[in-house]
Design a protein around this nucleic acid. Structure first.
Lengths: 335, 335
DNA sequence: TTGTAAGCGTTATCAG
DNA sequence: CTGATAACGCTTACAA
């Protein structure tokens, strides 16, 4: 039989309000009584029923997390950060997997709200007007991850994709590469494909290299797609000497194509990635890439939500976390 | 303002019990009234408050999932199955990450229970007496994944590790290998290291090959550890011609060591794995491995839990799912 | 077929 | 400092 606040009150010979006070220390209780209650609580192993508590407090200590694919490496690591920090503040996370489908996303958004979650961390491939409607209608604290939300005015967390791409392109050029292919992960407005392209273009420009449209591909953030992109890229004799894929997944796809077709990385063609998922250092050759602070992204996201829940005003809404270029073995100096 | 059953009742000019009846269709309601209520519900976009419902029903439509590491590839895929099937039956999953620490596991087990979850899917690296105590004390439906629970009498789901290892070893032998190293993922009782070894040993025995203790290593289920194992394995000239790692992670670790030290896979040494995580076909050379139905494992787990919740008796407790040997490029026929 | 009212386990208001 | 008691939003006997 599960024991309730009533039982504790009875055993301790006090009213339930008193018990409530000691467990929340919300109001003064005489030390003597407090001790008595505490003792009973210990003896009975009483734990307050969070559901009842939620009902009256209208809070659930639950934070909803909506992701397109749990089994994605990048997302898994983010989730680690979210979960760990969440637990520190006594929040549980309830997880929703959408496979990137809008209807699912909308459904979960509403579901989570009705479940009384106190905030939502939202990852999607495409930001949609319907999402915005929801965000505006609900007062729930919400934060997005790795999405360009400036025009939507939704809090978000990411790194500076423009700068990172700029630096990576510089790095490639410094290593003697001039014909540098770019495989972007998406060209929607809310995604950083544009920023990535701009960083790449800026670097090229500064080095007096003109942009060759034939070297720009859209890999749709998929390995298979990147695989095909590289196929096209290497059709001609005059193939690029370096391939910059804006996700590690795509970089792996690229390297796989090269491997499968007799090219050597980095001897024949250099490949660099973006994100530094665990896979990047598991693959051989180890991938040179831009390290995103993935765990931290999750951690910052949930911290932000918790702050908002507590009503603390946060003066910033768009968080830009630091990145780093990690030099490994997939890029060759051809000077 | 959020609208409640009371509001609906008022607007529809009925009692709240009637509203309750139509939303649950628990008791007969005249068609006329039902339509009226339904209309109001639609207009007001009313959704029942699940927290209040949980309180009275003592159910939460929540299933707890405890895992050692969300960002692990194997676990991520399982989670996909769990989540997807769960949602079909209207269950949400609340996720807990333990990093394999016993205290965390115990804490979460209790936390989940107090949160009124209706069942628990539990993944751990080591099964402990304390776990068992909890399972026995609570009436919660519980299922474990990939753990040998026979002596604990806890429902569990896995493949037949003995048979799979036996088949894989046969395969290696059929390909001409005689000096076959085994890197096991763990040798605790509750883990399948023993079964894996037995399958391996049985195959060797049937082929008249005697076991060489020096070829048996414990990779502790870690890439790094496997890396070191292979270092030892290749110290001598008379190194094995094939390495059977009982997890893909370890197989990758093994291949990485070989790559880093000038061995070619599979030309110099063959490597095979176990699990068939996504990584297995992303890596080059593509890994020959035992395919576990990972998604299905998650799906079966949650189905089992849901059945139990509904009080349906399940005649079996230990589920053995089918596996398959996937031939790819990391093993060479040396005949 | 419908309504009334009790109760789920808490917190919070208000007297004392 | 402490204790009744209302309320949170819902389900479910029990009556009508």
């Amino acid at each position: 039989m599960v024991i309730t606040i009533k039982d504790v009150a009875k055993k301790a010979n006090v009213s339930i309000s008193t018990v409530s006070r000691v467990i929340n220390d919300s109001k003064p209780v005489s030390n003597e009584v407090r001790q008595r209650v505490l003792k009973v609580i210990e003896e009975t192993e009483y734990t307050p029923n969070p559901v009842a508590r939620s009902l009256v407090m209208k809070k659930s200590q639950l934070i909803g997390v909506i992701v397109p694919d749990i089994s994605n490496f990048f997302i898994g690591e983010i989730l680690n950060g979210v979960e760990e920090i969440g637990k520190m503040y006594n929040y549980d996370i309830i997880l929703c997997n959408t496979y990137g489908e809008l209807t699912q996303e909308l459904r979960y958004l509403n579901l989570l709200k009705s479940k009384q979650v106190e905030g939502i961390i939202f990852m999607t491939r495409n930001l949609h007007g319907k999402h915005k409607e929801f965000f505006e209608a609900s007062e729930l604290p919400i934060v997005m991850i790795n999405r360009n939300t400036s025009e939507f005015n939704i809090p978000s967390i990411s790194i500076d994709h423009y700068l990172a791409s700029y630096e990576m392109t510089n790095y490639l050029i410094d290593n003697g590469h001039k014909r540098i292919a770019l495989i972007r992960s998406g060209i929607d407005n809310d995604v950083f494909g544009v920023d990535q392209f701009n960083g790449y273009a800026q670097s090229l420009k500064e080095h007096g290299i003109s942009i060759d449209e034939k070297l720009i591909k859209d890999g749709k953030s998929k390995m298979e797609s990147a695989y095909e992109c590289v196929q096209e890229l290497t059709k001609d004799e005059a193939h690029p000497t370096a391939i910059f894929a804006t996700s590690d997944y795509m970089a792996i796809g690229a390297m796989n194509y090269l491997f499968d077709n007799g090219f050597k990385v980095p001897e024949d063609i250099s490949v660099v990635g973006f994100n530094d998922i665990k896979l990047a250092s598991m693959y051989r050759p180890k991938l040179t890439t831009i390290k995103q602070p993935i765990y931290d992204i999750g951690a910052v996201a949930i911290r932000f939500i918790i702050k908002r829940i507590k009503g603390e005003e946060t003066n910033e809404n768009i968080f830009i976390l630091p990145h780093e270029l990690i030099e490994r073995d997939s890029c060759r100096n051809i000077l």
